[in-house]
Amino acid sequence: MSRITLAARRVRQTLVDFDNGTAVLTAIARHKPELVFEVDDDLTVICPNVAGARVPVYEVFAEDAYRLDWFTGDLPADVSAVDIGGHIGCFSMAFARLHPQGRVQTFEASPTTYGFLSRNITGNGFAERVTVNNTAVSSKVGTLQFADNAGGSGLNGITAPAGSTVIEIPCTTVAAAFAQAGDRVDVVKIDTEGAEYDIVLGSEPADWAGVQRVVMEYHPVDGHSWEELEEFFAKAGLTVVRQEPLTPRLGTVWLSRTALPL
């Protein structure tokens, strides 16, 4: 998709899918440091006015990128999710709103992005059901070197480009993250800009035994391929029920322990 086509689509989505679309477009044009998207009367999303940071707002609330109703609508009312790569909270808020009795344990590595995540969760009244952690999920418990480009950047992460600001952050494992979420984890979402290989392949298939559904983005990382993740999840009893590739090495995939209608 060309940049012009994408820009036109974003303008249309802003006006159609957000109650204050005109104000958002004006704030973008005037380079305001923050944007406030009014999804509806019950939900607002505070976002850095950075192109990459805005993407999840559109993906979740204008495009239904995670297909949450289809993917999680049949799960128990008290469904439990772990959001790895919580960013500013779009997935966690959409999930919590769809499942009023559900709960989410959210992990966001970037301290700057975590600030927006915390504000959004608290400001929209989800703090009792969505627990936010300024912690990376990794293959180890301890600390790791992390590129934090601020502004909710999609370039944050352990695979960020050269010249990024690198900081030390706390990290935990999949097993520890699941334990922190409680007795049961039904759904896991992963979007970590390439760190998914370290996160998933650094865990054990047995760690995922109770997980019913996984939705994740996979990214091009030297030395790795989506097939590695697919093989790992097959060992964990989770198979692909939907896949939307953008390129041979980049896309979104949905996995389930049981068959789902398309």
Rank of each mutant, 00 (worst) to 15 (best):
V174Q: 13
V36P: 08
S139P: 08
A94L: 13
G142H: 00
E193L: 06
V104I: 07
S203W: 08
L117G: 02
P48T: 06
A109M: 06
V174G: 14
L262Y: 15
L43A: 15
G154R: 03
E128W: 02
F107D: 12
V55I: 15
S80W: 00
V60P: 02
A51W: 11
A176K: 12
V253P: 00
R97C: 00
F91D: 02
R257E: 01
A29P: 08
A62Q: 05
H219P: 00
T135L: 12
N20E: 11
A176P: 07
E63M: 10
C47Q: 02
L238W: 07
A94K: 14
S118W: 15
P33F: 10
L25K: 15
T131M: 07
V36G: 11
K140M: 14
W254I: 02
L98V: 00
D40P: 14
L43N: 05
T72V: 11
G157L: 06
V174I: 13
N49E: 02
Y114K: 05
D41K: 15
R249M: 15
V141R: 13
V79K: 02
E59A: 12
V55L: 14
L15A: 03
L201Y: 03
W254T: 09
E217D: 13
F232V: 12
F71R: 09
D83I: 04
D69Q: 15
L229Y: 08
P161Y: 10
Q212T: 13
E193Y: 02
T165M: 10
L262F: 06
G154T: 09
V215N: 01
V240L: 03
G251P: 09
A29T: 09
P48I: 10
L144M: 10
K32R: 14
A109G: 10
D78L: 00
A109H: 04
L35A: 07
D74C: 12
P245G: 04
P170R: 01
K140S: 15
S164W: 12
P248D: 06
P261E: 08
I121W: 13
I169W: 07
L155Y: 10
S138F: 08
D78N: 03
R213D: 05
R54H: 01
D69W: 11
G152P: 03
N134M: 14
L25F: 13
V221Q: 13
R54F: 15
V211D: 08
Y66G: 07
E128Y: 04
L155F: 07
H87A: 09
T239G: 04
T192H: 04
A109Q: 11
